[in-house]
Nucleic acid binder design. Sequence first.
DNA 1: TGCGCATAGGACCGTACGGTCCTAATATCT
DNA 2: AGATATTAGGACCGTACGGTCCTATGCGCA
Lengths: 225, 225
Amino acid sequence: MSDRRTQILDAAATLISERGFTSTSVDDVIKGAKLSGKSHFYHYFKSKEELGYEVLNRQFERFAERGLAILREPMIDPLERLNLFIDAVVALQSESGGRHGSPFGNLAAELADAHEGFRVRIEAVFERWASQIRSLLWEARPQLHDDVDAVRLSRFIIASLEGAVLMTRVKRDLSVLEGIAADLKRFIAMHVRDGTVMQLHRNLEDAGSSPHGIARSMSVPSMAG
Amino acid sequence: MSDRRTQILDAAATLISERGFTSTSVDDVIKGAKLSGKSHFYHYFKSKEELGYEVLNRQFERFAERGLAILREPMIDPLERLNLFIDAVVALQSESGGRHGSPFGNLAAELADAHEGFRVRIEAVFERWASQIRSLLWEARPQLHDDVDAVRLSRFIIASLEGAVLMTRVKRDLSVLEGIAADLKRFIAMHVRDGTVMQLHRNLEDAGSSPHGIARSMSVPSMAG
DNA sequence: TGCGCATAGGACCGTACGGTCCTAATATCT
DNA sequence: AGATATTAGGACCGTACGGTCCTATGCGCA
């Protein structure tokens, strides 16, 4: 596609993640993308709404490449992939110092009620995200308890990450996300069958802040045998 | 205070939770509160921003009365109080069919980056919320593992609830929140010392959707008993 | 009666917004 | 050289916004 288009998309993505969709004017986008005037912009996009949709698309693609892709790595143990994915979410947030939050969560909170077009597109984003996690859980099924509900667990993972990113943004403190990410890993580990020991990366072991290595308790609840 | 003021506050709260702060005009609020004109509104509030702050205050007070109050009930076991609180969050969302999400999360996503005044106020809301959970966890400390980090656990609870409420709004499906609430209870139960059996209300037992009563596995990690 | 105050209603202002339209300059291809 | 599309730049329009100001009506109270 035209170079200009992606230039506009990039500028818009930045502005929208900083100020939200409603508070980003097309004049701002024009300035950010260094276009010559309004007509130049409307040559590439038929409306601001249309621009918003494409920005959302691009941001999901970006997230799919840099985040979700990890969930499909064929050479790594599925449950370890899940941990790596959580780390990737933390890493992506770190790039902006956690200041901009999730592009999906932000748009969702801003527009889910008021704008049906955005709502269904964001719903689709969450659904595709959830479905990637579900297939990973399906793949990991031999290692998991029989009663693990993949639909629910995938939702829980997404919700806690989205909530964590939001709190991180409000508190301007990345350690909020880091702590929740570590706890989320423990929650996932809770679903692993007895006897299965999860592989952990060296650099993940100290993800927690508690002194006596919470990570060790990751080898599952207990019972049965 | 004047009846009119609360009338305005109520109308504004509704509109803001439906459309967000930016997309709610003071003319809309005037119409909603059936005021006679702009000057009438500006007689009670010096600016739209000021109105927003007071709406946020009121909404936190409401939440404190109807939600957080449960965390302080003196006659109930602390960990059971925590479960009841989670149920209360679900119940509060059910009132609107989950359509409006969290007033704090919504404002946070919309304004945390752009408007420092709102950001610090929302941060304070989360902090007060977290501190209530922390004191409850302190009270429950004899029942909890030694290595439970109250700061982290309280953040995790808030984040997963906020994320759940957001997803519920996007999917327009209350069962998303219900499932996450049930999973969150299981996560909390994971921190309870072996040998301690959590009391559960009858009406909480089937909070999950999985056929083989996940609720039963709430009796903590394991054995004992 | 007269004072102060909450209600009422509307004109007005400056600014910003999304979007359209029109005209030049520049580059590309025939 | 001439026709064609892309870039550039700006004037313009209707609407909506937050906010101010001014006037007039009803009200209780000294």
